[in-house]
Design a protein around this nucleic acid. Structure first.
Lengths: 166, 166
DNA sequence: TGTGTCGCGCGCATAAGATGCGCTGCGAAG
DNA sequence: CTTCGCAGCGCATCTTATGCGCGCGACACA
């Protein structure tokens, strides 16, 4: 309990940090040397800033993004669903299950007509169907009903949060 | 035009590649040395495989993921909308606009009641409202109508595509 | 106004990692 | 049986990271 992350210390992000984040959110594996040059700083203070951003949790992690289409997973769908019972135990049980389903890459509890919205990756309609029937709607499921929305095309999909927003 | 990416050569991914992808999708900045050790290979062939995965486009890019909540962007909403006219020009014009809106981190053309589903990041209800009114629904907008769904909680959000799926 | 201190920059020396190269073993094709 | 090519290994070299110490400028306080 001695860093900003645990202490909840106010996180101050200045223009340099913004520049760093704008670069790292697109080129996560850039060398510190090039990053420093890019933002106009020498390597040591640049590194110090990056470390601070990591330690305060602003930078959560670094990941490689794989192209789903190249590995035969070009078929994405949105699934909205309602549970049989809207209570904490039911929600917890469902969420625990969903977290362990690799096909589900996103799951949000939402306000409105449905309880949850999921994004599911699959290879085609057939494999999506077997996912729904065999894995999501298994005999003792908590799900009361669901609706599938097919994604025709991904127009935009980014992990980058533009620095103009913060 | 001399690599698999442009030629459309079949991409073969074996168990080793799967192991590599499983690691890099979670620890994108791991050193080649440690990655090699982790998957049980020496550094040189490990590196060769990683390079091939990059060149074939299986690995699209490496990025740093920032925690939206830590920079005051903890309020996500889903926006579904329909355009005034369902023709190519109208779609193209709308999409071009959406791509340049940093608040929109995801935009899918969908089948069903609506034309598009978007995910929008913002700091709170007030700033979301001004985004909708000032930036999305500007006077000469192509949007006929929209519906906002507030995300109460993100249960799961991953960029990782589990190797069991491909 | 002088002075202590703190944040934040710089550059350098050393440790760690990446990269390129040649060598070897194994399996398929001729 | 031989040859070829793929995919592994280890080593030598070059690049990068990391951990110092140093100096500058802002700010608080006597």
């Amino acid at each position: 309990m001695e860093n900003a992350k645990e202490m909840g210390t106010a996180i101050v992000i200045d223009e340099m940090d913004r520049k760093i984040l704008d670069v790292l959110q697109v080129e996560g594996r850039i060398t510190n040397l090039e990053l420093a040059e890019r933002i106009g700083l020498s390597s040591a203070p640049c590194m110090r800033r990056v470390r601070t951003l990591e330690e305060t949790g602003v930078i959560n992690s670094y990941v490689a993004l794989v192209d789903p289409a190249r590995i035969g997973l070009g078929f994405d769908v949105i699934v909205e669903l309602r549970l049989k019972q809207q209570n904490r135990e039911s929600f917890a049980r469902f969420e625990k299950k969903v977290i362990n389903l690799p096909e589900v890459v996103e799951c949000c509890m939402i306000a409105g007509d449905w309880d949850y919205a999921l994004r599911v990756v699959s290879s085609d309609l057939a494999s999506y169907q077997s996912f729904i029937l065999d894995r999501l709607m298994h005999p003792d499921t908590d799900i009361a009903s669901y609706r599938t929305t097919i994604i025709l095309r991904k127009v935009k999909s980014t992990t980058k949060i533009d620095s103009s927003l913060f």
